[in-house]
Design a protein around this nucleic acid. Structure first.
Length: 576
RNA sequence: GCGGCCGUAGUCUAGCCUGGCCUAGGACGUUGGCCUUCCAAGCCAAUGGCCCGGGUUCGAAUCCCGGCGGCCGCACCA
């Protein structure tokens, strides 16, 4: 018989025991969507909590929650409407679909900058391009938009889109969030939530979904300031595949400490390096070894429109090779600048100088009477526009062209004078830069399941890290008798009361129950036997070693807590 | 979206090529019962299936067409 792939084994287990399965099964299923079952949902929550615990708790990064549906303007500003679409053409003969820009690139041999559908069509016609497969004629190009589109409100014309990333919600709220952070920089804002992308052909179960969960941090900082956090993680060694290597055809990772990588300019920003190191540590903590992780830099033409540098944090999966589980992008001030321009809102931070500085600056002094004379009723508006402009620019314009244009009116030298004044500057205003670590939850979940999947003889043991195991312990009476049942059930109640995720199982033989528990990754099984009735002790059995220790029943919550938190090893639990 | 392979209980699978012996067989699981003092033991019983739709035929799990879904390759993954 054909050997089964790891994905097949894992997803078989996932279906059978309720981690995840394909959505809409009774209607034949739809690609790109999965349902999480009871265990999958629990696992998801624990992964989210592990992530919060790791990234947010000690670093003052706080979490918000914003809508999935956003109005059109948001994605105009963010640039997604521009770049989240691809021009497609279809062959009228064989029906094959192609990326129009790719066809053109192949034909002319250089990068083709998309400049609109008409231009593309003209180019295709001009070059006499036909279907590369069958030679049939090509349709007019049209855009395929990877965002889901909808309307907001009934009978509404207002177009809305489902967000393809959670980040925009954070950028939009920047002003308020910066206030709430009491004007401190750097600071980070996190969001965990669904994002949607209308993938052309999703595959690989939980790896490529149309609806998936992102855990993202937008970390705002002053680009002129040294990254002070590198010290903490600076010596962490990363496996990197820099773009400079890739351009020379080298895909082998090099090893550099974060500090070195930043110094050598392989990672162009300290905070980016900081989060990459943290990211590695986080994924290691989920049981995925270092040597199965690497950071793969995107080439400039592969990068998203907003990014100055992107590293994909990849893990090695059995069936699919290296898969991105997190992306680390240096988004610079792109998003805030764009939202500032589109909304007309000031989205800048203020950094006070140590001592106020006296700066000479130019002031525009309008002559109101002359302006009224020249512009009549509009003079007030023209004046306001004039005052909003950069004084230097106004002066330059008037000197070189003889006028400055404000609201379509020509403001000449007769309308204004300039005065050099001294102002006290207490600080500078600037648009913060952003680095964004962005984690794909479902992918991480799958990677964790795959790495946890092990067998012992013909039994499956899911060696899930203790902190994310959906069920932390199971209470078992050794055999089904009234005495044992009573004792076991009261222990179960006590553990539930103490806040553990614990189950009770009295079905089948003891071996079968252990097997059931192993298969869903329950770290500890607690067995109540005849001796429990005599001396009040119970057996703790460790999933990974199958070793057993005896502890007093009333000590179980304490022991369990120490063991699960990693404070005590299993053997120590028994002797404590 | 194209090409190749594929779709049978909760899971895995036999049957399909060569239509009827299929009232679709098995294993595991699950549930109930008996038994059972530590790793899927045993016995009894129950549970449940041919992806969807159309066609060919006296008769379709089996042949044909379409759809949906899966895997692999191409493309795509901003």
């Amino acid at each position: 018989m054909r050997a089964k792939g790891k994905y097949e084994l894992v997803s078989e287990l996932a279906r059978r025991r309720g981690f995840f399965w394909q959505s809409f099964e009774i209607y034949g299923g739809i690609g790109g969507f999965i349902d999480l079952g009871p265990l999958g949902t629990k696992l998801k929550h624990k992964l989210e909590d592990a992530w919060r615990d790791f990234f947010l708790k000690r670093s003052g990064i706080y979490e918000i929650s914003t809508p999935i549906i956003n109005p059109r303007i948001v994605f105009q500003a963010s640039g997604h409407l521009e770049s989240f679409k691809d021009p497609m053409v279809e062959c009228s003969k064989c029906g094959r679909k192609y990326r129009a820009d790719h066809l053109l690139e192949d034909a002319i041999g250089t990068k083709f900058e998309a400049i609109g559908l008409e231009a593309i069509d003209a180019e295709i016609e001009g070059k006499g391009l036909a279907c590369p497969e069958c030679g049939g004629s090509l349709s007019k190009s049209r855009y395929f938009l990877t965002m889901f589109e909808t309307t907001i409100g009934p009978y509404s014309e207002a177009i809305g889109y489902a967000r393809p990333e959670t980040a925009q919600g954070i950028f939009i709220d920047f002003k308020r969030l910066y206030e709430i952070a009491r004007g401190k920089l750097p600071f980070g804002v996190a969001q965990i939530g669904k994002a949607l992308r209308n993938e052309i052909s999703p595959r690989q179960g939980p790896i490529r979904l149309r609806e998936f969960t992102l855990m993202e941090i937008e970390f705002f900082f002053d680009p002129e300031e040294e990254c002070e956090a590198l010290g903490e993680v600076g010596e962490e060694v990363l496996r990197l595949v820099p773009a400079s290597s890739r351009e020379r055809g080298i895909e082998e990772p090099i090893e550099r400490s974060v500090r070195e990588a930043v110094r050598e300019g392989i990672i162009i920003n300290g905070w980016l390096g900081f989060f990459m190191a943290k990211s590695k540590e986080f994924i290691c903590g989920l049981g995925i070894p270092e040597e199965r992780q690497k950071f793969h830099e995107k080439l400039p033409n592969e990068r998203a429109h907003y990014s100055a540098q992107t590293f994909d944090h990849e893990v090695l999966l059995e069936d699919w090779g290296w898969v991105e589980i997190a992306g680390h992008a240096y988004r610079t001030d792109y998003d805030l600048s764009r939202h500032s321009a589109f909304s007309g809102q000031e989205l800048r931070a203020f950094r006070a100088y140590e001592r106020p500085r006296i700066a000479k600056t130019l002031k525009v002094v309008p002559d109101e009477a002359k302006m009224r004379e020249a512009f009549g009723e509009r003079h007030k508006a023209v004046m306001e526009a004039l005052m909003r402009a950069e004084p230097e620019e106004v002066k330059r314009s008037i000197e070189s062209r003889g006028y400055f244009e404000a609201l379509g009116e020509k403001v000449g030298p007769e309308h204004v004078s300039f005065r050099s004044i001294e102002v006290k500057e207490t600080g500078r205003r600037f648009i913060p830069h952003v680095v964004e670590p962005s984690f794909g939850l479902e992918r991480i979940m799958y990677a964790v399941l795959e790495h946890s999947y092990s067998t012992k003889g013909d039994r499956v043991v899911l060696r899930l890290p203790k902190k994310v195991a959906p069920i932390q312990a199971v209470v078992l009476p050794l055999v089904n008798s009234k005495d044992l049942e009573g004792k076991a059930k009261s222990l179960w109640e006590a553990l539930l009361e103490a806040g553990f995720d614990v189950e009770y199982d009295d079905s089948g033989s003891i071996g079968r129950r252990y097997a059931r528990a192993d298969e869903i990754g329950v770290p500890i099984a607690i067995t109540v036997d005849h001796r429990s009735l005599a001396d009040g002790t119970v057996t703790l059995r460790e999933r990974d070693s199958w070793k057993q220790v005896r502890v007093r029943a009333e000590e179980v919550p304490r022991c369990l807590r120490s063991y699960l938190s990693g404070d005590l090893g299993f053997e120590e639990v028994g002797s404590s």
